[in-house]
Design a protein around this nucleic acid. Structure first.
Lengths: 185, 185
DNA sequence: GTTTCATATAGGACATATCCTATATAGTAG
DNA sequence: CTACTATATAGGATATGTCCTATATGAAAC
């Protein structure tokens, strides 16, 4: 599972708490990886148990104690090995494509409505992408490295590109419906 | 979960067994939905229990008995409702993007190797797409409807388009590395 | 006759993710 | 003082998917 390596990746820059990581997953990388808070805490525990991270309790005066995690040399090696490894192919699983496939059973009017709905969701997604600040200063909290920031921008870029390409395709299909190019039975 | 609706979709054309569905998931729709055999059998049981499908045992002389499932009117209505509904947004989850993001920690040579590897996987995926027969006769077993076949082709089309767009983007990034456009620290 | 494949069925155990709950600190709004 | 937000932690139960196992029929290859 990649959450372990994602967390190791963040810990390789600096030590963090579960709460810190939750904020990072909710902001900086939410366009390509979402993680649930309890999942993060459980994964941190697992990383510590298998020796890829170590934990230190920091007592706080006016807040509950913080558990700060830092990557170990073993964990750093595991991260580098994983970064160089080939990922197993994932079984494809697209509810959208199931709807597209079986919407052959709907009328052209209903198909168009469905496609317009999906297109709207994609436009909203693009608006979210466009609204993300793209200057490194906005991300000082998670990195000061221009190289790291550049690679983060790459993930943003591909997300936007893919969403835009899918939106173009949907609009093209809508046009084909309007042009009467879709078989009726 | 969309597997229920995918199965309802197939049953809406004709009655099928779990074994039939496994073959369909392994061939015709494997480019956008993969399903495990035991998952299919369990989901069929659930569809029957909640009244969206009904099951009839067909005794066979020289093979084990077959359990044939057919969609019910309730199930057909549920399918149509689902086809017209807006899907909840899925949390994004891309192991590839995690590798891209953290590969900032690798050297340019290592990053290139990683991207070439991903590119190779995509070329293989495209080769698989290109090898899929695109004449309706090859799919007589699962549909004889030109409209249904057209919508199936749409799912193929978007899969190819997305894979190609991603491959172009990776090649572009490799070019940027070669051109020295990527920050070093 | 053993292995593999095809045709059939389906349960057990586990992995991963989600959603909910719970606790404990402080601060703000009403 | 209740509700909400922020800062902190983490377990219980469930949903979904995977992998393995098991059974039972026939056919083909070695």
């Amino acid at each position: 599972m990649s959450l372990e390596h994602a967390i190791l990746g963040f810990l390789s820059s600096r030590q963090l708490t579960g709460y810190d990581l939750k904020k990072i997953f909710d902001t900086s990388v939410r366009h390509f990886w979402a993680a649930d808070q309890s999942q993060i805490y459980r994964t941190l525990g697992r990383l510590a148990r298998q020796g890829w991270a170590e934990m230190e309790v920091i007592t706080q005066a006016e807040r509950p104690d913080r558990k700060v995690y830092r990557i170990t040399p073993t964990g750093r090696q595991e991260l580098l090995n994983w970064l160089k490894s080939e990922l197993p192919a994932e079984p494809p699983r697209s509810p959208e494509m199931i709807q597209v496939f079986f919407s052959a059973q709907l009328t052209d009017v209903q198909v168009r409505a469905m496609l317009e709905r999906v297109a709207d969701q994609m436009r909203q997604g693009l608006a979210v992408f466009d609204a993300i600040p793209k200057n490194i200063e906005a991300y000082a909290e998670f990195t000061q490295s221009p190289r790291e920031f550049y690679f983060w921008l790459l993930t943003l870029e591909v997300g936007q590109m893919t969403t835009r390409a899918n939106l173009d395709w949907i609009e093209n299909v809508i046009q084909r419906i309007q042009d009467g190019e879709v078989p009726q039975a």
